[in-house]
Amino acid sequence: MPIDLEVNGKRVSVDVDPTTPLLWVLREDLALPGTKFGCGAAQCGACTVHVDGASARSCVLPISAVAGKRITTIEGLDGKFGAALMQAWTEQDVPQCGYCQTGQIMSAAVLLKEAAKPTDGDIDACMSGNVCRCATYVRIRSAIHRAAEIASGGGR
């Protein structure tokens, strides 16, 4: 039975095994490979997307559980916070291998929505679910502070 959902503002209908994790539907059926597979067990955050505006680990979320929901992936991340994060990430050259970074940015976008000026403690609490094997954490932290500044009108 097809499952309907909204992905990056578009209504889509997918006819797949209902136990399929959202991650693989995004990657294989909807041609949105920016969301990454890292662990398949909600351990690393590489697959982070937004479901109705909240962070979710798409690698363990069956597609049947998101029927009718609004999904945002890195490809559809726009608006004030998305733009500010991408600008800050670019200014500070955060990525190394880059594989985890889309998940990092998706997590950070939810943080900025909830805390316009996040503290280091807020960043620790929100971002500790996202692993970076290259350990770009110093720059992730500074880029989130910078993105908050940009989003609040401090961008140049």
Binding site: T73, I74, M86, P95
Partner: peptide, 12 residues
């Protein structure tokens, strides 16, 4: 600035 950053932050 790294040449690969823009694509990496956009998932491209």
């Amino acid at each position: 600035k790294r040449l690969d950053t823009p694509d990496k932050v956009r998932g491209k």
